[in-house]
């Protein structure tokens, strides 16, 4: 029952576990933001088929447990990618892909759906007159997006985005079921080999709690900054 560094304790294992948890969450979230942007655009554009596709994507992801989706995307994604690489002659038979890439893909596809709705809400909350005014000034679509829509949209979407960040750090715990070394996996192997379940799962929980509290503080500052130009009622 020790958190010492090196062979005598689990301190270094926990440290690398935290690093991996953060890596999975940050990468997953970054990709999910891109997917969410595309999804929001698909849901709001004028092409009916894309609207429908966006709806199906978010509805399916919202109604199926994350654990199941992560397993499914992980196995399907890994085998598809392996077959593709072998098919292209880039790899040899019996290739073992890094499971880290698989779980990041899975998490980003799940959170892409949640962020789609968050970002769509943000876009819709921007007053129509703002876009019209930008058009009247002769701004083209890219400039309208970069200068007018995006800065205002982020302000509305930030609370939802913060929530999803907090959720993805917690849901990254689920990837321990496919054996990726992250916080929960480290906690479990420490607890199983020493039989000090209360202690090691307690430590794992406390680390997550610390991550959440740090995130809350940083996100609070970010929100304040995003709202700096707005008069408070």
């Amino acid at each position: 029952m020790s958190l010492a560094w090196g062979d005598s304790g689990y301190g270094d294992e926990f440290f690398w576990g935290v690093c991996n948890t953060l890596l999975i969450s940050v990468c997953g979230y970054a990709i999910a933001l891109v997917i969410g942007m595309l999804g929001a655009w698909a849901k709001l554009c004028h092409i009916k088929a894309l609207n429908r596709a966006g709806d199906v994507y978010t509805t399916v992801v919202r109604s199926v447990p994350e654990l199941l989706l992560i397993l499914l995307i992980f196995y399907a994604g890994m085998s598809a990618l392996t077959r593709l690489l072998i098919g292209l002659g880039l790899a040899e038979e019996g290739l073992q892909l890094n499971p880290m890439a698989g779980v990041i893909t899975a998490l980003s596809l799940v959170y892409g759906a949640y962020l789609t709705d968050v970002l769509r809400g943000g876009i819709q909350a921007v007053a129509k007159g703002q876009i019209e005014a930008a058009k009247a000034y002769g701004m083209h679509a890219t400039m309208r997006f970069v200068r007018i829509l995006f800065p205002q949209m982020i302000r509305f979407a930030l609370p939802g985005m913060s929530n999803q960040w907090l959720n993805i750090t917690k849901d990254s715990a689920l990837v321990s079921v496919v054996g990726v070394i992250e916080l929960v996996q480290v906690g479990r192997s420490a607890a199983n080999s020493t039989k000090h379940f209360v202690f090691y799962y307690g430590v794992t929980g406390l680390i997550y709690l610390a991550l959440t509290i740090c995130s809350l503080i940083l996100l609070g500052r970010l929100e304040k900054r995003a709202n700096r130009g707005v008069r408070r009622a």
């Binding site: 917690k170 321990s176 929960v184 799962y201 959440t212 509290i213």
Partner: peptide, 13 residues
């Protein structure tokens, strides 16, 4: 604690 830690960790604990 309930909102700040993963349900999975709570369950294992």
């Amino acid at each position: 604690t309930m909102r700040g830690t993963p349900l999975l960790v709570q369950l294992y604990f």
